[in-house]
Design a binder for these strands. Structure first.
Length: 255
DNA sequence: ATGGCATTGTTTCAATGA
C-alpha cells in the first residue's frame, strides 16, 4: 500500500492534476498541503468521485491541509493541542489501523525573523505532541512539507544555502528532535539517487537545472518502518503544465 | 542587495512562499 504527500500550492489550480494522478497512481493515503481553500470551497465531491474519503482543514489564501484515503478516515483531529494556531497546518486521522498526521510546517521566511521564531516554536510544540502520539499510536506516520532540508545532501548547493532558511542548524536540530520521538525518515531507509529533491524554485529554470531541496518528508514509527519496502519522489508531476513547485513523495508499506 | 516565478485577494500591486 502507498502513502503519499504532496504540497499542491493551491488545490483550486491543481485539482485536475490531482484527480488524474489519483486515477493513474492509485495511492491508498494522500496528505495534501497548501490547499489555500476555505472548507466551504473544498472540492469534496470531485475527490470522493475518484474513490477517496476526505478530511480537511483550510482557510482563505494561505496554508490548508487535507487527508485522502481509500479506506474510511476515523478519529479526525485538527491542530496541535499544545500550540493553538489560527493557521491550518495539521490534520490527523486513523486509516486502516495507521495514525496519519498531515503537516505543513511554517516556512520561516528568514533566519532571525519573527516568522523564524514562530517556526521553531511550532516545531518544538509539534515534537512535544508527537512524542505522546507515537506512544498512543505505535503505527504512526507523519507526512508533509517540513520546510527543512535535513542534511547537506538534501540541498543542491550546500555552500550557498549554509545557514539559510530551510537549512539552518536550529531547523535541522528541530527536525532531528522529531525523529527522536521514535520516527524514521522513510526516504533514507534505502539507497537513493544523488541530488534527490522534492521542491524546485519556479524561477531561474530551477527544475530544469535540478536546483532543488528535499523538504517534503514521510516519517514512520518503528513498526511502520519495518513494513516499508520503498520510498521515492514522483518527479514527473513537476514536469506538468502549471505544476506545483513541489513533487509528491511516496512510501510503500507491505500489508 | 535584488529579482527571478506563482498564487491569492481588501487585485491591477502587495504579501507570501522557499
Amino acid at each position: 500500500m502507498e502513502l503519499a504527500s504532496w504540497n499542491v500550492n493551491s488545490l483550486k489550480v491543481r485539482l485536475p492534476q490531482l484527480l488524474e494522478w489519483l486515477i493513474v497512481r492509485q495511492p491508498d493515503i494522500v496528505c495534501l498541503q497548501e490547499t489555500k481553500l476555505e472548507d466551504a470551497k473544498f472540492p469534496r465531491l470531485e475527490i470522493e468521485a475518484a474513490g477517496y474519503s476526505v478530511a480537511f482543514a483550510g482557510q482563505k489564501t494561505y496554508n490548508g491541509v487535507a487527508l485522502l484515503a481509500r479506506q474510511p478516515l476515523v478519529d479526525i483531529a485538527i491542530g496541535n493541542p499544545y500550540f493553538p494556531d489560527p493557521q491550518q497546518r495539521l490534520i490527523a486521522a486513523t486509516i486502516g489501523g495507521i495514525r496519519v498526521i498531515c503537516a505543513y510546517v511554517p516556512n520561516g521566511q528568514e533566519v532571525g525573523s519573527e516568522k523564524y521564531a514562530y517556526k521553531l516554536a511550532w516545531l518544538a510544540a509539534l515534537a512535544r505532541w508527537l512524542r505522546e502520539e507515537v506512544a498512543e499510536y505505535p503505527h504512526l506516520a507523519i507526512a508533509g512539507d517540513f520546510n527543512i532540508a535535513p542534511d547537506d545532501r538534501d540541498v543542491h548547493n550546500p555552500v550557498v544555502w549554509a545557514g539559510k532558511i530551510l537549512c539552518s542548524e536550529a531547523e535541522r536540530t528541530a527536525f532531528r528532535a522529531l525523529l527522536d520521538c521514535g520516527l524514521k525518515d522513510s526516504f533514507r531507509l534505502f539507497d537513493q539517487p544523488e541530488k534527490s529533491f522534492s521542491w524546485w524554485d519556479y524561477r531561474m529554470l530551477g527544475f530544469q537545472k535540478n536546483l532543488g531541496l528535499r523538504i517534503d518528508h514521510l516519517l514512520l514509527s518503528t513498526p511502520l518502518a519495518q513494513r516499508c519496502t520503498a520510498s521515492l519522489i514522483d518527479r514527473e508531476m513537476r514536469k506538468h503544465e502549471r505544476p506545483s513547485d513541489h513533487a509528491p513523495v511516496i512510501t510503500v508499506l507491505e500489508p
